[in-house]
């Protein structure tokens, strides 16, 4: 990113090639709408391009990248009248959120996908940051602006629910 900030467009291409897939899946699985996901994905990279001159390597680039994505997702949920905080409880209950019931007639992967979609947004985000971005708990905490304990708890709940959904099959 520093090389790109110095004017090396090739450095950006390297960064983009390295993170494009994970970021896109992170956004896509967070919003569940391909059109919206593409729009947000592009917006993340536009923010990166605009911030090239003031980028300071305080953390790994990927943490900074997913922080931008997280902030855009927050904005997206706010526009839709939703809130990550409101969905951040592990007591969210609905019929569609019950992995065991919906995974009965599906393949394990289908159950996993459904369970992932059924996760509370904050937990899903923590899981996706961990899986797609390879972020540690501390990095997830930094990217999402919460304490490490909260990040760890979210990730733990997400893992437990997803495992339960898969095992139910």
């Amino acid at each position: 990113m520093l090389a790109y900030g110095a004017g090396d467009a090739g450095a950006f291409e390297t960064l983009y090639a390295r993170h494009r897939g994970g970021l896109f899946r992170f956004v896509l699985r967070a919003v569940k709408d391909r059109g919206v996901a593409e729009e947000l994905f592009q917006e993340v990279w536009v923010r990166v391009i605009e911030a090239r001159g003031r980028y300071a390597p305080k953390a790994r680039f990927i943490t900074w990248l997913y922080t931008i994505a997280h902030n855009l997702l927050v904005d997206h949920w706010r526009k839709k009248g939703l809130s990550l905080v409101a969905l951040d409880g592990d007591d969210v209950s609905s019929e569609s959120a019950n992995p065991a019931r919906q995974a009965e007639s599906r393949e394990a992967l289908a159950r996993l996908v459904h369970a992932l979609e059924s996760l509370p947004a904050a937990q899903r985000e923590a899981f996706l940051l961990h899986e797609e971005g390879g972020l540690s708990v501390a990095e997830i905490a930094a990217a999402t602006g919460v304490g490490e304990e909260a990040a760890k708890s979210r990730l733990r709940y997400a893992m437990t629910k997803l495992k339960a959904a898969v095992d139910d099959g």
Binding site: G7, A9, G10, F12, E13, R20, G21, F24, W45, V46
Partner: peptide, 25 residues
């Protein structure tokens, strides 16, 4: 493993090149 569409890749890379006013590496 979903990937972003090619036109999106091209648009983003073009924007990045335009931003630094340099030719592709």
């Amino acid at each position: 493993r979903e990937e972003p569409p090619r036109h999106l890749d091209d648009a983003i890379l073009a924007a990045a090149r335009r931003a630094v006013h340099t030719r592709p590496a």
